[in-house]
Design a binder for these strands. Sequence first.
DNA 1: CGATTTAGAGGACATTTGTCCCAAAAGCTT
DNA 2: AAGCTTTTGGGACAAATGTCCTCTAAATCG
Lengths: 190, 190
Amino acid sequence: MQNLLRSYQLFSEAEIESLGPFLRSRRLEKGDYLIKAGKICTEIAFVQSGLLRSYYTKDDGDEITYCFTFENTLMTAYSSLITGLPSSENIQALVPTELWVLQKRDLEALAQRSINWILLQKHLAEQQYVELEKRIFSYQKEKASERYRELLLAQPHYLQQIPLQYLASYLGITRRHLSRIRREMLERAN
Amino acid sequence: MQNLLRSYQLFSEAEIESLGPFLRSRRLEKGDYLIKAGKICTEIAFVQSGLLRSYYTKDDGDEITYCFTFENTLMTAYSSLITGLPSSENIQALVPTELWVLQKRDLEALAQRSINWILLQKHLAEQQYVELEKRIFSYQKEKASERYRELLLAQPHYLQQIPLQYLASYLGITRRHLSRIRREMLERAN
DNA sequence: CGATTTAGAGGACATTTGTCCCAAAAGCTT
DNA sequence: AAGCTTTTGGGACAAATGTCCTCTAAATCG
């Protein structure tokens, strides 16, 4: 996590070390939850190793994958963390996952002492926005097969670990259709 | 604009007034642009009256509407403002529009003097994120007719001013299909 | 290891959405 | 008012995507 913070070029080495006492190590087994829908999210997790999936549930009970989080990135039920409202997301480990967890209240305490922790939050929110905007664009202008193709390009090998049904709802389609898309890509490759 | 700032409960009255000298009034006629794709966006606009549309262009030349901005809200080519990269968005007035424009560099100067201007930026980024997340959800789980129905509910009368072709690409569909959806809603209403 | 669950491919058919048109209506310009 | 341009609605057909279901292979678990 410290390396991630360094990459933002906001912090002195002393500040980065001051974070240490607030980080709690946590291990999730496959299928364990970081947060469940209905709870208010009060923490931010850094994925040291492993893989997380965030999903929510439709009225008819179907699960829809909102996003995945790979190694060396941050994860939280961000809307709930921001608004203080109950989360609609469930965050679950797809494989055994090692985390460093920071409590929101500790981050706020740090922010009282150095403005850089506020700048960090601003920066993260902006980054997340830019990511989502790209995703909106892809929903607006691409058909599902193109969205899948781009996902394959962007996440070379991580995707191997993800069941196709999760990828399908992430892309906004059914597993049946993703199966079709994959077959067409194979046929075209030969 | 001052009322909008008050609503965030971040600023003293003095701080809000300190913004005044940096605001430039600007009027756009119907069809005029606030920013064009390819330029780097360096300003934030408050829509005093009127209506803006942001759109980008597909490779095949089709225009896709990214969002609309109604009265009493802020608008900018946000990704470009954040990243400093050229904008992929065009922002255009759909009707005669009165703006107050703030330069990014002036906001940064204010932020040097009071941390509250940084907190404002953090808050705005977070708000924008939450909005986009909702939109992703609607693309993932609803069909176009439901997205249109919800849009009608959320934006009661503003929508009257917006040509249907713009609404269609905002919803991620063609105008042919939006026409069908509208007809079905009419038939069901009788 | 065998039994049970879960993931994946795909057939058959239904629904949604797109493409390519054209014509009427509405808005703008001179 | 006449003549543009833009907007809207919709027919006919094609493509994309969903639903329901079945079969098989792979993963999991006791």
